[in-house]
């Protein structure tokens, strides 16, 4: 591990040793504990990106709230998107314990400086996409996130416990949407299949590039922020969704999927990583649209936030005067 310097410039060997001990003992680092700057920065990057993903992720599903085809589905979808706003709030709060402000995170997001999950740069033209997002996208998110409940940084791990509980409900409701469509009319079945065809590969890419090409993974695993490699998690996800797709009566768009007795896992085909990097670089179907919507909400709301701040100042002045 790199040697860390204190503010005075001296190497604080004792603090570093304590940090290493906590990590080795699988205990939690808390906001008041000393931590290496690189650990802090890695966490800020990861937690804020995760928060941004929740916030941007409200859009593709929000797209169907006004058109949900039954009132029950409308209610479930609204509750789900509301959960995502809540997740964004917890995650921003967890990141704030590391010394970054919410304003800074918002600015990084709307100026395009910060990243968020590329999956949300795809459009949701079909109602069945509400099913695919729940089943595949939230399903992949759960595989990624359950191990994060044990992340070494306390506030992050604890936020993830609650988030994972809600995500698992989200996944079930997505599966249920697809099941209902698949067993519905011919048009509904086709709607479900078409949607799964579009979301399958992007969902698998949510685990990040293959381990060999994942630059930040090794250090994060050493720090116990990350517990499993990208490829391990991807395999776990494929093993989970193949039998589920059979229950759904839908096919996954990969002819290479096949049970491998020897490995005890499903084999699956190569993913088109060029597409992944294209979307990551901002050349996805909806990158500019997602950012612009966030920017517009922020800018259109500026006068409201100013009014709330002015009112709060006025109230506290009056309280002081009385």
């Amino acid at each position: 591990m790199a040697r860390e310097e204190t503010e005075s410039g001296a190497i604080d060997q004792d603090a570093l040793a304590r940090f290493d001990e906590i990590i080795a003992a699988d205990e939690r680092i808390e906001p008041t504990d000393w931590m290496p700057e690189a650990y802090r920065k890695t966490l800020i990057r990861q937690i804020s990106q995760h928060g941004h993903s929740e916030i941007i992720g409200m859009q593709p599903e929000g797209n169907w709230i006004t058109r949900a085809p039954s009132l029950k589905r409308k209610a479930i979808l609204m509750a789900k998107v509301q959960d995502e706003a809540g997740h964004g709030l917890y995650l921003y709060s967890a990141a704030q314990t590391l010394g970054i402000t919410r304003d800074k995170m918002t600015e990084d997001l709307i100026t395009g400086k910060a990243k968020y999950s590329s999956i949300f740069n795809y459009h949701t033209p079909s109602w069945a996409d509400m099913g695919s997002i729940g089943w595949l996208v939230d399903g992949a998110a759960i595989c990624n996130q359950v191990p994060l409940c044990r992340a070494s940084y306390g506030p992050y791990g604890r936020a993830m416990v609650r988030i994972c509980k809600e995500e698992s409900f989200h996944q079930r409701q997505g599966f249920e949407i697809l099941l209902h469509l698949s067993r519905g009319t011919k048009e509904q079945h086709e709607m479900a299949q078409e949607s799964v065809n579009r979301w399958y590969a992007p969902a698998l890419m949510m685990f990040g590039p293959p381990d060999a090409d994942s630059p930040n993974s090794a250090q994060s695993m050493a720090w116990k922020i990350k517990r499993f490699s990208n490829d391990d998690l991807r395999q776990r996800f494929v093993d989970m969704i193949v039998p589920q797709s059979e229950v759904l009566g839908l096919t996954l768009p990969d002819p290479a999927i096949k049970w491998n007795e020897k490995r005890g896992h499903y084999d699956f085909g190569e993913l088109d990583w060029d597409e992944f990097y294209e979307v990551l670089k901002g050349r996805g179907p909806a990158n500019s649209i997602r950012l612009e919507r966030r920017r517009k909400a922020h800018e259109d709301g500026a006068w409201v936030r100013e009014a709330a701040a002015a009112y709060a100042a006025r109230e506290s002045e009056q309280a002081m005067a009385s």
């Binding site: 006004t66 998107v81 509301q82 706003a85 909400a297 409201v304």
Partner: peptide, 28 residues
């Protein structure tokens, strides 16, 4: 429901959606 992801603050996204959900429950 239109306000989701358009509100001036995240807290307001949550609040307006909550109110929408309550109203939808009454309507149902």
């Amino acid at each position: 429901g239109w306000w989701v992801a358009r509100a001036p603050e995240l807290e307001e996204d949550v609040a307006l959606t909550n109110i929408a959900l309550d109203q939808l429950g009454h309507a149902r």
